[in-house]
Design a protein around this nucleic acid. Structure first.
Lengths: 347, 347
DNA sequence: ATTTTGAATGCAAACGTTTGTACAAGAATA
DNA sequence: TATTCTTGTACAAACGTTTGCATTCAAAAT
């Protein structure tokens, strides 16, 4: 572990000053190409590795950006992360990923930690528990760019990228109606979260427009944000509730793929045919949906794209930084992925 | 965006020096409790946020550790990450996650990037493409602790934590034999990767010990490291190959859950009953395995524990740093998770 | 021949901590 | 009373860059 070579070592070796070396390395126009060459060669020869930390200190910029995800083991978030990385790596940024586990306290701690290590920006999706947004306000106040995605909060007035959940839901339900379904159950998420609200609205409006009366009995609200296993279990419970009802629905539109799959399991065990007796549509296009039988029709949210856009918003905000910027909200159009679980009339 | 308050501001306010403030904040024994109190109060009052970057520069330590995963969207790696985080966060470290996408060049780039931002350590699982380990050697040479997990390389002689794949495989195959299977196909991974080698060995030995002749025709080697979708497809292809053989196997032990599930799909489509006609065991305990019908018996690798241990190895190595440390290799015992796909004789 | 321009580089101060050493004053020891 | 410890604090030099401003020297313009 020999000591690292610095910009000064190079300078000394070439009998010039550190500042010249610094400029040469960054290809400053005022440095002659002769010295540039010399510096580059020497840097190579001495195996020079720039000390990023020193640069960060001087420039007040760490080139690290922080991402907060509720949980990294859902393909949804994994994919968003991937999308963010694609964009920022090319710009010389590094990504630090934190998980809030959907807990307010952890989210808060994550934000603290990220600010502490002086990230240049934070890209986050808010935890389900969070109702107080002071920690995010702090980020804004400190002048650190904040970008929200998917689960956002309007009051914060920051750049955000979300999918059009209303539209996704609308498409899904319309599709079910086209398949001849008339009695469509909705597994809804908690209504204090924007995405679940929008999905419920889409569900209602799609039916209204097709002249199907909306029956509140058919809307089962539940906290759908838990570990996969638990949400599957919730789906099973709801399915059992449905079995106790006098009349079975002919379709289920679930705000969660996992809840849908749990319910499918129960129905299948009871010998109920899917999609003939009951059709299913989930939400999120989790990979597991392609393994269950029949394949689960679901709504894809273009997650990677979402990450791309969030990262882009960050970069934009960085560039306009000095000026007052006006927060943008980018809306992504989701896509219905049709598989066997919803095809009543065959292909 | 008011300017940040520094240690000097506090010093000035209290009419003492920055060094005293620095020591007071870190609770140095030589500072009187009176001044400590005063400093703490003032720090609070001025909303002081320590500048980590400056500290890092001075101390030559960033408190960031880098993790390289082949891909973050497999539950295997997501879970390892979670395990690492659990341990290091408490010690004041932050985690930066990079994906190699199983490409040698990206892995190399990741390592460079991590070294560049001066991480205090790197925890990695090697990409499938990687056969040259110079980039990892560089890490060692620079005195940066390196810990490998799961896919490791012996020649590097570093701390590592792996699961006992031989044992996992042995258990799986023994289980199949106990279920009465005599003609067991193995979907093997590429043999230049340690884990797949061990699994093949376990498969062979388990049969030998039970007096079952090992038939090389039944070993199908394939690159099993691809996107989920592709591996599923590979599983389907192999299943079709098996259908062309004169005699069907009575069990399939796959080194990948996804390949197993792909094959199951094909068999089911052909009306072959699982597990009655053909039993299945996969590997990795990916969550998707619980959704397919019947549930996929598989080998769980205690992934979170693996992350915990890797992180612990890092911390240990940090502490013994000055001394010559002797690399440890921790071996985890995998667990067989039995579901419907392998139960021929009922529960 | 003098002034103006411009290109190439040097100087030195920052960025905000940490830390070895020095120093002062009082307490304990001889 | 003289000496040695102890305790609490100050001084100043790092850590490795970046950057505004000054300087030099030669070529171009007057």
């Amino acid at each position: 572990m020999k000591k690292k070579t610095t910009i000064r070592d190079i300078a000394e070796e070439l009998d010039i000053t550190a500042s010249t070396v610094s400029r040469a390395l960054r290809n400053h126009p005022r440095i002659s190409s002769a010295t540039k060459e010399a510096v580059w060669d020497m840097a190579d020869k001495l195996d020079y590795q720039p000390n990023n930390i020193a640069a960060a200190l001087r420039k007040g910029k760490s080139n690290i950006i922080g991402a907060i995800v509720p949980t990294s083991d859902r393909s949804f978030f994994a994919s968003v992360i991937r999308g963010i990385e694609e964009v920022i790596r090319d710009e010389g940024y590094n990504l630090i990923i934190c998980q809030s586990d959907d807990q307010y306290s952890k989210e808060q701690a994550n934000v603290e930690a990220l600010l502490k290590i002086q990230v240049d920006g934070i890209i986050a999706s808010v935890a389900k528990e969070t109702t107080n947004f002071d920690h995010f306000k702090r980020v804004k106040d400190q002048g650190v760019p904040l970008i929200l995605y998917d689960r956002v909060n309007e009051s914060l007035d920051v750049n955000a990228v979300v999918t059009n959940d209303y539209l996704g839901s609308y498409k899904a339900v319309t599709h079910l109606i086209e398949q001849g379904c008339k009695r469509i159950v909705h597994f809804a998420g908690k209504q204090h979260i924007n995405i679940y609200q929008d999905r419920l609205k889409g569900y209602i409006d799609a039916q209204r427009e097709q002249g199907i009366p909306v029956d509140n009995e058919l809307i089962l609200e539940n906290d759908l944000i838990f570990s996969m296993e638990k949400v599957v279990e919730l789906g099973r419970e709801m399915a059992n509730k449905l079995l106790d009802m006098p009349e079975l629905p002919d379709a289920i539109f679930s705000s969660s793929d996992f809840a849908a799959m749990g319910a499918m399991q129960v129905f299948k065990e009871k010998g109920i045919k899917i999609p003939r007796d009951v059709a299913f549509v989930g939400y999120s296009n989790d990979v597991s949906g392609s393994f269950i039988e029949p394949g689960l029709t679901t709504v894809d949210q273009h997650t990677k794209r979402m990450g791309n856009l969030a990262a882009q918003l960050f970069l934009d905000q960085m560039n306009e930084s000095s000026k007052e910027y006006t927060p943008r909200k980018t809306l992504l159009n989701p896509k219905l992925v049709i598989r066997g679980s919803s095809l009543k009339c065959g292909e």
